[in-house]
């Protein structure tokens, strides 16, 4: 099904190309995701999921395939952390919330009204913290995170360098983390 191009030189813009890059760099990816997760076994799982993702995802041309594979894996790791947290919370919740049982099945998996209020409060807290950011960092952060401009677009708009954009974003994230602790 794959359409191979006649030019063999570095065609990395299809799934086949990405898979080839993954195969060629597998040891490096395993090493990196072992560092990222702290577990060689989880690194194996993550790299496997990256492979599944690129084998099936609808990606356009990828400029830097190896960096792309790393970023896909970073998202997978984050999803796994979230899933673990969610499960942890749910198990904890079960100790003090009674769940409606029907034929042995738990039927109430939706967030409680409490969770929803929590979500609103949380969004408000985030908005307040973003508003309180230092002006430079705050503006860059909002253009990038909330308005969806890329780093280079923000850089062009504000007439600053890409690395200055990165610095502003880092400052913003550090402030937000401290504010929301």
């Amino acid at each position: 099904m794959e359409t191979r191009r006649s030019t063999v030189e570095n065609e990395n813009d299809d799934a086949g190309g990405l898979t080839a890059v993954l195969v060629a760099n597998r040891p490096q990816l395993i090493r990196f995701f072992t560092s990222r997760t702290g577990s060689p076994a989880e690194a194996e799982d993550v790299v496997q999921e990256i492979w599944l993702h690129v084998a099936r995802a609808d990606t356009g041309p990828v400029v830097n395939p190896l960096a792309y594979l790393h970023r896909v894996g970073m998202n997978i790791v984050l999803d796994r952390i979230r899933e673990r947290q969610r499960r942890g919370r749910r198990e904890q919740g079960w100790s003090d919330v009674s769940i409606e049982q029907r034929g042995g099945e738990a039927t109430d998996d939706s967030p409680s009204p409490h969770d929803i209020v929590d979500g609103r409060l949380r969004a408000r807290r985030l908005a307040t913290a973003i508003e309180a950011l230092p002006p430079g960092a705050g503006r860059v952060f909002r253009r990038h995170k909330l308005d969806g401009l890329s780093h280079s677009e923000v850089a062009a708009e504000l007439g600053i360098s890409r690395s200055a954009v990165e610095k502003h974003i880092a400052v913003a994230l550090r402030h937000l983390r401290a504010a929301l602790e």
């Binding site: 970073m74 984050l78 952390i81 979230r82 979500g119 609103r120 949380r122 969004a123 408000r124 985030l126 908005a127 307040t128 973003i130 508003e131 909002r142 995170k145 909330l146 308005d147 994230l173 550090r174 937000l176 983390r177 929301l180």
Partner: peptide, 24 residues
């Protein structure tokens, strides 16, 4: 982890956050 989760959360709650901010 803490930074990446926070960043991800901001993305997920983007609309609610924008609604809570003065116009850009």
């Amino acid at each position: 982890d803490a930074i990446a989760l926070l960043d991800g959360e901001i993305e997920a709650r983007r609309d609610a956050i924008i609604a809570g901010l003065p116009a850009n």
